[in-house]
Amino acid sequence: MGKGRKTLVLVIAKLRKKYTLKALLNYTKLAKSTYYDALKKLSREDKYKGLKTLIHNICNKNHGRYGYRRVTMQLHKQGIKINHKVVMRLMKEENLTCKVRAKKYKSYRGQEGKIAKNILNRNFKAEKPNEKWATDVTEFALCNRKIKEAKGIILHSDQGWQYQNKRYQKLLKEKGIIQSMSRKGNCLDNAVIENFFGLLKSELFYLKKFKSVEDFIKELKSYIKYYNTKRIKIKLKGLSPVEYRIKFQLVV
C-alpha cells in the first residue's frame, strides 16, 4: 500500500464519526471495496507491528544470516508462538531476506594412500564432547592449524597430502590421537567438516570485507564464538551447540 493511500484511508476512518462513509468516499473518489481492503491491511500491520520489530532485531543481531525457519525458532525461544508461514510473509513484506547464499564447498581430495583406515565411517554422532573430531584444510591463506591436547579422540580427515605428512602423523601419535581418513574422492566421508567450512565462508567470508589479515582473524574468532554460543541449529532443536550441551548436561 502506498503512503498516500495509507494516509487517505486513515483520514477517512477518523472522519467517519463526523461524516457518512458514503460522503467521504464520494469526495475522495475511493471505491468502497478498496477502502475496506486497505483498512484490513492497516489493521493487520498494527497487529504485527511489535512482531516485525522483534524480527528486525533478530535479523540484525545475526547479521542477516537467518532465514525464516531460524527466525521462527528464535521467536519460539522467546515465548512467542507463531507459525513459520506468518514469519516468512512478514519477512518478505519487510524485505528481510537471508543474505547467505550457500556455495558448494570443494576440498582437496588428495592421492589414494594407506595411512589410516576409515574408522569414523560416516558415524558423525558422538556420545560426548571431544570423542570425535573432523578436520580439513580450507583456503583462506591467513591462519595456521594447531593440534590441541586431546588424548584418545578420533581425528578424521580426507586423504590430503597434509594428513599424509610423516611429521603430522608423528605429532598425532605423540598426542595419543587416533587418525581416521576418508576413502579416496568420497566427500561424504568427511561431510561434517566440509559443510562447516562452506557455512563459514557463506556466513562470514563472502558477506564481509576485511581491512587486513588481523581484521579477518578478529572477525573469525568472533564468528566461532557466535557459532558456538548464539547461532541456533535446527538439528539441535533450535539451540546453539553450547545451549544444547548445557540443556542436556553433556559432559565436557
Rank of each mutant, 00 (worst) to 15 (best):
H84W: 06
Y48L: 00
I153Y: 06
E214G: 10
L204K: 07
G176L: 01
D158N: 13
A150I: 02
R16T: 15
G79I: 02
K52Q: 10
A134I: 01
V71N: 06
T135E: 12
V87L: 00
P129C: 04
R101I: 01
K209M: 04
L239T: 02
N186M: 05
K184L: 06
K166H: 13
L42R: 06
R70K: 13
N190Q: 11
L236I: 02
E203K: 01
L54I: 08
N186T: 12
G110Y: 09
V251G: 09
K52Y: 04
K99A: 06
I224T: 12
K61V: 02
E93A: 03
L204G: 09
K218N: 10
Q111L: 07
S107G: 14
I177T: 02
M73F: 12
R69I: 04
K17L: 07
G64D: 07
G238E: 03
K175S: 11
Y27A: 15
Y19K: 11
G67P: 12
V9H: 03
K106W: 14
A116C: 03
L10W: 08
L199N: 08
D215I: 04
M88G: 05
I153W: 01
G160K: 02
D189P: 03
K29S: 14
L24M: 09
L25V: 05
K49L: 08
K211R: 14
I12G: 09
R122P: 08
A126S: 14
Q179D: 04
I58W: 02
L90K: 01
I115R: 13
H156I: 01
Q169Y: 04
Q164V: 00
Y27D: 12
K103T: 14
I82W: 08
M1R: 08
Q78G: 10
N144H: 08
F124C: 01
K166I: 01
K117T: 15
K184T: 09
Y105M: 09
H63V: 00
I115E: 15
L24D: 11
E219Y: 07
K47F: 11
K235A: 14
S43N: 13
I154R: 00
Y227F: 08
F248H: 12
K40A: 12
M1P: 12
D37I: 00
L172D: 04
N186W: 04
L24N: 09
K106L: 13
K173V: 03
K40H: 14
F205M: 10
N83W: 00
K6T: 13
V71H: 01
C98G: 09
N62R: 09
I217Q: 07
K170V: 03
K237L: 09
G64A: 05
K146M: 10
L120R: 04
A102T: 04
I55G: 06
T72L: 00
L204D: 05
N123T: 14
I193L: 05
R167K: 13
T97W: 13
A23T: 07
L8N: 11
N83L: 06
E127A: 12
L207Q: 14
V242K: 11
R44W: 02
K47H: 13
V86Q: 11
K233H: 15
L236G: 10
K128E: 06
R109S: 05
K103M: 07
